[in-house]
């Protein structure tokens, strides 16, 4: 469970987060939407304490990460996977070494076991047989997949996605969203996805939060957000175009269908895991 309580943060002279309060239940995925530059990525970095705010708390399963130091911080972060915008793969290492890196450095696993694990994760993200390539030889979508594999290899309970589909073509973007969904079904992590892909992202998540002018202005299930009458939300999800309203009904219908099926699935999966 991730709880953000009254978080304030300033970048330079600009107030980016102005009292953000947010809660993501265990096993749930939350979509964080909002205009570019509104501070979604900043909020995400606060969750893992890569950035520090001047006020407020971020609780990971009840433990405050903003004040954690040394071993404690390391332990908290080890439960969290972070998919960075560009993938953040290490340029000097092959895909295999990239994915094996956290295992080699942080665990005492033997090389044979690491090999099995890495190849398994690569297969899961659809990059079988690519392990000897360097990040520079891959396309943007492949890099994202590889980065996801690197996160999953340490089996994190929490996954944070910083704009996983930005800069990709619609087909690749869709396949990445699909991959995130499948991965969630497989390991059932608690997650936050920063995304602009509306309405695609709504089919992926359990909750949606909208960040606007440093505050969360809307929070709810994708259905509630679709039906929201809040003017800022309304404008954002239609992209300011009136004709978009017409295509809402079929989407809402589809969402309802999807949501009914998925809600149960998540619960069951979680029970199985425990």
């Amino acid at each position: 469970m991730i709880q953000v309580i009254d978080l304030h943060s300033t970048l330079g002279k600009q107030k980016v987060l102005d009292g953000v309060t947010l809660k993501v239940e265990t096993g749930e995925v939350l979509a964080l939407i909002g205009k570019s530059g509104v501070g979604k990525s900043v909020l995400l970095k606060h969750v893992v304490a890569l950035m520090k705010g001047e006020k407020g708390k971020v609780l990971i399963d009840g433990e405050d990460i903003t004040t954690a130091k040394g071993r404690k911080l390391e332990e908290l972060r080890s439960r969290i996977g972070f998919l960075f915008q560009g993938g953040a793969l290490f340029d000097s290492l092959t895909l295999f070494d990239n994915i094996a890196f956290p295992l080699r450095e942080k665990t005492k696993m033997d090389e044979q076991k690491i090999r099995e694990k890495v190849l398994y994760e690569l297969e899961q993200v659809g990059l079988k047989g690519m392990e000897h390539k360097f990040p520079a030889e891959l396309s943007g979508g492949m890099r994202k997949r590889a980065a996801l594999a690197r996160c999953m290899v340490t089996a994190p309970e929490i996954m944070l996605f910083d704009e996983p589909t930005t800069g990709l073509d619609p087909i690749t973007a869709h396949s990445i969203n699909d991959l995130i969904k499948r991965t969630h079904e497989r390991v059932c992590f608690t997650g936050i996805v920063v995304s602009h892909e509306i309405p695609d992202i709504f089919f992926l998540v359990d909750k949606v939060a909208m960040l606007h002018e440093g505050k969360i202005v809307a929070f709810g299930t994708p259905l509630e957000i679709m039906r929201s009458s809040h003017p800022v939300v309304r404008q954002f999800i239609t992209g300011g175009r009136r004709e978009m309203e017409d295509v809402f009904e079929p989407i809402i219908e589809k969402l309802e269908e999807e949501f009914r099926a998925k809600g149960k699935c998540t619960q069951e999966k979680k029970d199985e895991k425990v």
Binding site: K45, R77, S78, F84, A88, L89, D91, P102, K106, T154
Partner: peptide, 17 residues
């Protein structure tokens, strides 16, 4: 510098390294 702007340094920190 490139490792910084492509968030590779952040990725290291996230791995607890």
């Amino acid at each position: 510098g490139i490792m910084r702007i492509t968030e590779q340094i952040d990725a290291l920190e996230m791995m607890g390294l």
